[in-house]
Design a protein around this nucleic acid. Structure first.
Lengths: 210, 210
DNA sequence: AATAGTTTTAATCACTTGTTTAATTCATTT
DNA sequence: AAATGAATTAAACAAGTGATTAAAACTATT
């Protein structure tokens, strides 16, 4: 049997948690295939066999981490998108701010997500935001009203791609951006922070241009 | 010695070229680490040992393909960006159209490039568009004039990120877009083709909004 | 302290992977 | 046709990999 979960403890994380944290780092840095179980063991400071003792296999460990990421990703977004008390433009601002803050705190996430997208197509992509494509979302209702008022002719797909492209892409391409545009780590953070205000402005300009 | 290059021949590609083409496909589909030399051999329909016979090693083969991609990538862009006879807005339209056409023809390229960005940081990123960050580009000169006229307050980094984000990101996230937005392969191509006109319009709206 | 159950370790297994080898086939020249 | 060198093959090697094992160390309960 396994040791009790110990979730509330604030002291030293359990070895299970330490291995998971190490795996999170290594998988994010190198991707699934390039990560060796020995890398994770070394990074965690624990014996190689403990990886299989706690998680059965490399793949199971990866799936656990992946699911945690997805859950984290979706949970906050759902809160914003389903809030009756905010308007459509407010939701736009909140979404952008949330994504940028989240990505500034976890710069490795996009690489991680992309790796998933291009390797686990079916199994995973059904889970990704499976709660998100429901037609019940407050955001969708508000959008319908907005569109019905004749305020926009652009296809929703374009708008979503624009929002994500303007928000997420800089983080995906950050190594190249930093190098080719001579942007330091500090300056990159400053740029992204600026974009929290700018992206919603740009999105409104895009909507008005159609 | 090696068989003569035979570059002009239009008939059957040489086994060397066949292996390279197979490697291109498999590397693009699975990434470097997840690709086994046996996968490439099988995909090419040739014996495993021929891979090392022609290319010495898996890594050398990968580097050759990588360099070809980069060269292709840069060559066309340089042509557009350094053209004295086109205006700034025209360059914008040409760049977007070129990228979208190129990505529609080679949907795997972004994954390939991202894989490089996040694994070969130093060695490669210096080569990527090393010709591009020169201050001599016609585009840069034209931009300076445009900015000096007080037409824009936005930092160039934002503009470049927006251009690339609006253009390239949809291809990176295409598996998720297709699934979550219920877009078929055909519809995706149609959407991207629309964007050839739309992105320049949006970019101008963004520039005007600042 | 003895016991039982859990956690950790070192060693090893079985298999995969990149690469090499030695032999064979093929093509070209003499 | 013989000979030479290139192209191709089947087989194997050495190192690396995920996983397992059996023993040891640790922890708690009696």
């Amino acid at each position: 049997m396994m040791q009790e979960e110990n979730k509330t403890e604030r002291s030293i994380p359990s070895t299970e948690e330490q291995i998971k944290a190490a795996a999170r780092r290594v998988f994010t840095r190198k991707g699934y295939a390039a990560t060796r179980t020995r890398d994770i063991a070394e990074e965690s400071g624990h014996n190689l066999a403990l990886l299989n003792y706690y998680f059965r296999s490399k793949e199971k460990l990866f799936n656990i981490i992946m699911m945690e990421h997805l859950h984290l990703f979706i949970k906050d977004v759902l809160g914003i998108v389903n809030d009756e008390s905010t308007t459509l433009p407010q939701k736009l601002e909140l979404l952008v701010a949330h994504y940028i803050d989240m990505l500034l705190a976890n710069p490795g996430v996009p690489v991680f997500m992309l790796h998933i997208i291009n390797t686990n197509p079916d199994e995973l992509l059904n889970n990704v935001a499976s709660a998100l494509d429901t037609e019940q979302l407050v955001l969708v209702k508000q959008w319908r009203q907005f569109a019905a008022a004749g305020n926009v002719t652009l296809k929703p797909a374009h708008i979503i791609m624009n929002l994500l492209g303007l928000t997420i892409f800089p983080f995906i391409a950050s190594p190249m951006i930093k190098r080719k545009l001579h942007v330091s780590d500090q300056e990159f953070i400053a740029l992204m922070t600026e974009r929290k205000q700018l992206v919603p402005v740009w999105m409104k300009a895009i909507l008005a241009s159609s």
